[in-house]
């Protein structure tokens, strides 16, 4: 009886902890390497989302503001790390403005040698067909470049502002850029 109660306690607490980690797989929409939590911070949020946000302390973007998408792995499923170079390549997402930023595994943004490791869509170089490519590397690169110098393990956060991606089923058909690993040191 005692053993059973102890086992139940352990099991209950452990499964609860698993679901409120950040980023949690619960109530998320996965798009390739990216995950989004469109219900976070809304009245439609389920108890898991509420618990996760309360634990992490993150302030979500409101539906009238935008949507955050997060990737912690590359397209092959390997965790992102400053030991490798990556290319984020794809089409411009449907948003008036969007930003790409690096953060550490605690959700604090990464600061590179020349300010924050982030890029806004307003000064992004694009090809004629609207596609773009951003290089993540510790060493300076030509074209769009975000420094991963000193980042260690990191996550990539894309925030879409004033976006149509939040309305209805638009999110499930959203075409997000791929994260391709180049060479590793």
């Amino acid at each position: 009886m005692l053993v059973a109660t102890a086992a139940a306690l352990t099991l209950g607490l452990w499964t609860a902890w698993l679901t409120v980690r950040s980023p949690t797989p619960i109530d998320a929409i996965a798009l390739g390497a990216w995950q989004a939590w469109p219900n976070a911070g809304t009245a439609d949020a389920d108890p898991y989302s509420r618990a996760r946000l309360a634990r992490v302390g993150e302030i979500p973007l409101g539906s009238g503001e935008g949507l955050m998408l997060l990737a912690q792995d590359d397209d092959s499923g390997a965790p992102l790390s400053a030991a490798c170079d990556y290319r984020i390549a794809g089409q411009t997402p449907p948003a008036r403005l969007w930003t790409v930023a690096l953060e550490d595994l605690n959700g604090q943004f990464v600061e590179g040698p020349s300010g924050v490791a982030a890029l806004g869509s307003q000064n992004l170089l694009r090809s004629a067909d609207g596609s773009f490519e951003i290089t993540l590397s510790p060493k300076p690169q030509t074209g769009n470049w975000i420094s991963t110098d000193g980042a260690g393990r990191f996550r990539v956060v894309i925030r879409l502002y004033d976006t149509s991606a939040r309305t209805g089923t638009a999110l499930t058909t959203l075409f997000m850029p791929s994260i391709i690993r180049d060479r590793c040191t």
């Binding site: 059973a4 109660t5 086992a7 139940a8 306690l9 099991l11 209950g12 499964t15 108890p47 618990a51």
Partner: peptide
């Protein structure tokens, strides 16, 4: 019983 109790604890913790 263990599974039911674990489930109940899980739900209580999340809420």
């Amino acid at each position: 019983g263990t599974a039911l109790l674990a489930g109940a604890i899980h739900i209580v913790v999340i809420l």
